[in-house]
Simulated scan of single mutants.
Amino acid sequence: MLDVTKRLVELLDLSPIGDDHFQGDSEDLGFPNVFGGQVLGQALMAASRTVEDRLCHSLHAYFLRPGNHSMPIDYEVQRVRDGGSFSVRRVIARQDGKEILTGSMSFQVDEQGFDHQFDMPDAPEPEALESEKALGKKLAEQMPEKLRDNLTRERPIEIRPVNPIHPLHPEKRSPHKQSWFRAQGPLPDDPVLHRCLLTYASDFHFLSTAMNPHGVTFMSKKLQVASLDHAIWFHRDFRMDEWLLYDKDSPSASGGRGFNRGNFYNREGVLVASTTQEALIRQRS
Score class of each variant (00 low, 15 high):
residue 228 L to M: 14
residue 211 M to P: 07
residue 260 N to A: 15
residue 24 G to P: 01
residue 207 L to N: 12
residue 217 T to R: 04
residue 271 L to F: 11
residue 10 E to Q: 08
residue 118 F to A: 15
residue 223 L to V: 07
residue 144 P to M: 01
residue 110 D to S: 09
residue 231 A to K: 03
residue 74 D to A: 09
residue 62 Y to E: 11
residue 67 G to M: 15
residue 222 K to G: 04
residue 122 D to L: 08
residue 132 E to Q: 10
residue 136 G to Q: 01
residue 107 F to N: 05
residue 203 D to C: 11
residue 61 A to N: 05
residue 240 M to S: 02
residue 31 F to N: 13
residue 211 M to E: 08
residue 5 T to I: 05
residue 79 R to M: 05
residue 275 T to R: 06
residue 35 F to E: 04
residue 166 H to K: 05
residue 267 R to Q: 15
residue 245 L to V: 11
residue 227 S to W: 05
residue 23 Q to G: 07
residue 221 K to G: 14
residue 238 F to T: 08
residue 244 L to C: 07
residue 71 M to H: 10
residue 257 R to I: 15
residue 229 D to A: 10
residue 74 D to P: 03
residue 134 A to D: 13
residue 63 F to P: 08
residue 46 A to C: 04
residue 92 I to L: 15
residue 159 I to V: 12
residue 14 L to W: 01
residue 65 R to T: 13
residue 152 T to H: 05
residue 113 G to P: 04
residue 252 S to Y: 06
residue 177 K to V: 13
residue 23 Q to K: 13
residue 158 E to S: 00
residue 99 E to Y: 02
residue 99 E to D: 14
residue 4 V to D: 04
residue 12 L to E: 02
residue 231 A to W: 09
residue 223 L to Q: 07
residue 178 Q to V: 03
residue 140 A to P: 01
residue 70 S to H: 11
residue 97 G to C: 05
residue 253 A to Y: 11
residue 171 E to W: 02
residue 233 W to Q: 08
residue 77 V to Y: 04
residue 233 W to F: 07
residue 188 P to G: 09
residue 223 L to N: 00
residue 84 G to Q: 02
residue 17 I to L: 12
residue 187 L to R: 02
residue 162 V to D: 09
residue 113 G to N: 12
residue 253 A to E: 15
residue 1 M to W: 05
residue 262 G to D: 08
residue 115 D to H: 11
residue 267 R to E: 14
residue 113 G to F: 06
residue 91 V to H: 05
residue 181 F to R: 13
residue 8 L to I: 00
residue 116 H to P: 07
residue 77 V to K: 02
residue 192 V to L: 00
residue 40 L to N: 08
residue 137 K to I: 10
residue 189 D to K: 09
residue 283 Q to A: 14
residue 266 N to M: 11
residue 120 M to V: 14
residue 265 Y to T: 15
residue 91 V to K: 00
residue 157 I to S: 00
residue 225 V to K: 03
residue 162 V to M: 10
residue 36 G to D: 13
residue 93 A to H: 02
residue 119 D to T: 14
residue 198 L to V: 12
residue 131 S to Q: 07
residue 111 E to F: 09
residue 263 N to C: 15
residue 114 F to V: 14
residue 50 T to Y: 00
residue 205 H to R: 05
residue 78 Q to E: 14
residue 53 D to H: 10
residue 54 R to Q: 07
residue 244 L to K: 01
residue 27 E to D: 12
residue 105 M to T: 11
residue 138 K to N: 14
residue 63 F to A: 11
residue 14 L to C: 01
residue 178 Q to Y: 03
residue 277 Q to P: 07
residue 182 R to T: 06
residue 74 D to T: 11
residue 147 L to F: 13
residue 193 L to D: 03
